[in-house]
Design a protein around this nucleic acid. Sequence first.
DNA 1: TACTGGCGCATCACTTACTC
DNA 2: GAGTAAGTGATGCGCCAGTA
Length: 432
Amino acid sequence: QPVKIRSRYKDGDSLKGVEMDVKLDVKKNTGIILDRKEFETDRTGSGIEIEFKDVSYSMSEQGAYEYIRRTVIGNPHARIVFKDPTGRKYTFERATDQIPPLPKAVLPHPKGVTADDIIDLCKTTNKKRFKNLLMDSLSRVSAKKIKEVEEATGIDMNKRPKSITWKEAEQVVNQFDQMKFMAPPTSGLKPIGDEQIEKGINEILLPEFSTAITRKPQAYRGGVSFIIEAGIAYGGKAGRLVGQQKKAEIMRFANRVPLTFDQGSCAITEALKSIDWRRYGVRNLDDAPISVFVNIISTNVPYLSTGKQSVAPEEEIVREIRQATMKIARKLEKYIRTKKAAKNEEMRAKIFEDLVPVVIKQSALLAEKDVPEYDKIMDEVTHKAKIMDMKHRLKQPEIEPMQIVITEDPKTRVKTEYEEYADYDEVAEDDE
DNA sequence: TACTGGCGCATCACTTACTC
DNA sequence: GAGTAAGTGATGCGCCAGTA
């Protein structure tokens, strides 16, 4: 089924509306317009309608609700309204008004291309020389590098791209693998940002403690750049409820999109499982009330399958995820340690508070004297100031809980086609 | 023959790698 | 983390080959 797009936009001083049925040409990465109609409008805004089949509306980890909930955490700037087929409507308000900047388009890096990609480029290009095709279509490929490839492979770099054979393309790719290239530009990578992640986590999970980190760009396979972001939430609504017990929840994302299937084979799961959580005050990760958020930002996420549901355990990626998670886990450990110490001090103080007055009163009785003023001494003995300080340190900033408005009306018919556009337009106007 | 667009070259700004 | 060197990308200009 084609995607239905309805857009209302400004054209000079007038407002215009256009409605289109669009399909995607995945080879050329361009849209194919199947049907286009113009209409009159009095406002701006856009709506997109896509049909999916076999959607599970259960509340499980693989269900649509959980997918939407995680999308909200990964995209705290978005306001999402979700209606399920029973008529229940969930409204997730945005956690921040900061719209993420658009990433810049960057050319593929030579370390990331395959012989197939080169043949594809050769077939579709209008360049006359193979060397110009490589220099203009790939990032970090200069005339000097072309000369190096030419000397190593013996391929005439001035020949027509269309005459390049599969064998020659493979030779070029193998040569690229052996060469050193400057890391690709990182302007194409736009991370969510640690502050935004924390806001998203806090709004949805209302945790006792939360922290997040955005690492510096790194490269895997010698040239494909990526950024790892991680966040951790402890207590509150963090973790997933299994029966009566809270279990740890691993939230995996690739370019802000939640990954809900194939958890076991994913680089993120592998990295998190390889961490010795006992070092960070967590006896067993599986049974802890913790939600761990990991997002990989890359122009070329190495997915394990065409379903794009798990990330390949590339050595550099697993190492970065470990580093990012261990860094925030150290902050969690500090929080858990302070919390434990405060609890111990409080228990100790309670014992003194119960016993000391009895001892003082009985001693005064035996000595046949008045009971002295002992409040000040009690505060010193029970370390009251220390406990207050610990409690103050544990206190997280006040968080306004997110308004997840749930409207339940079983009679509500689930709208299809363009009936929902009025709703979309309202949302789009909010975004402006 | 005129037009279009690819190519080569020069220059400047920016990014990355390297060293301390 | 700062400073420096090297490499790369973006841009503009003129030349030239291909095409109608």
